[in-house]
Simulated assay, not measured.
Amino acid sequence: MLSSQSIGVMHHLVGFLLEPVIWALMLFAALSVIDIGIALAERFSGLKKWQQSGQTDAFETLAFKRIERSDFLARIAPMLGLMGTLIPLGPGLSALGNGELSILTTAMSVAFDTTVLGLFVGIIGFVLGRLRRRWYDEVLTSMEQAHD
């Protein structure tokens, strides 16, 4: 079994992760808003310009990077949300055992907020990834037909 020292060290290390997880989630939320703007600009003007340019290789490279970014948001943000849920629950449940309900309330609030934010960013990434795949496939098909 683990010694109380190793458990204590692990508890402190995990406790230090909460702040970076929250900042990373906020960064991903900002990136998802920016990505929505980029996707709207693409849809209403950018894709037509790419299609007319006929630069298939450059477009494929750009498409790959943007789909990869959407997939990254869709996968990583929910993981960070889960981390942000679990990290404060340990101290919150400890506080409940000591009768300190205010600490438990704060921990639960952080846990729910990080879960919701992580899932929301993940949904945005998933939807943008799906839309972009369809849009880019249409443009690439059109570009290939134009060259034939």
Rank of each mutant, 00 (worst) to 15 (best):
L80Y: 04
T106H: 09
L25H: 04
L13E: 10
R130H: 14
S3Y: 07
G15T: 01
L93V: 06
E42L: 06
D113T: 12
R132K: 07
L119G: 00
V121D: 11
A29Q: 03
F72P: 12
I38A: 14
F59H: 00
P20H: 02
D148F: 09
I36Y: 07
T61L: 09
E138D: 06
S53W: 01
V9H: 05
S70H: 04
D71C: 14
I87S: 03
G8R: 07
L31A: 14
S3L: 07
F64L: 12
D113F: 14
K65Q: 12
K48L: 06
D137Y: 15
L93P: 02
G99A: 03
L86H: 02
F59R: 02
L89E: 04
I124V: 06
Q55R: 09
L80I: 06
R43L: 11
K48A: 14
E60G: 05
A24C: 10
S102G: 06
I103S: 10
S109A: 13
H11E: 05
L86E: 02
I87D: 10
G122D: 11
S4T: 03
S3N: 04
L131P: 05
G37A: 15
V9R: 03
A58Q: 13
M108Q: 07
G122T: 04
Q51R: 13
I36K: 09
K49T: 09
L86C: 01
L86N: 11
R132V: 03
G90Q: 13
Q51N: 15
F126M: 15
A74I: 06
A39L: 13
T115A: 01
R130Y: 12
P88S: 07
R66L: 06
M10N: 15
G46F: 01
I22P: 07
V116M: 05
L31Q: 11
F28E: 15
L96E: 13
A30I: 15
T105I: 03
E68N: 08
A30M: 12
P88D: 01
S142D: 01
F28T: 09
H11G: 07
L82Q: 04
W135D: 08
M143V: 01
L18K: 02
N98C: 10
G125P: 08
L25D: 04
A29G: 11
M79A: 11
L117K: 05
G8S: 13
T106D: 10
F126I: 08
L2H: 13
L40Q: 13
S4K: 13
F112S: 06
D35Y: 15
A111G: 02
Q51V: 02
D35S: 13
A39P: 08
L117E: 14
W50V: 11
L25G: 05
L101Y: 08
A77H: 11
S142E: 00
A111H: 02
T56Y: 12
L82Y: 00
I76V: 15
M143F: 00
A74F: 04
K48Q: 14
E144T: 05
L13T: 09
M143R: 00
L2M: 12
H147P: 01
G15Q: 00
M79Q: 12
T106V: 14
Q55H: 05
G54I: 00
A39K: 10
T105Y: 10
L93C: 03
I103D: 08
S4M: 09
L31N: 08
L140W: 01
L27T: 11
D113C: 10
G92S: 09
A63D: 01
S32C: 13
A30R: 15
M143N: 00
D113R: 14
Q52N: 14
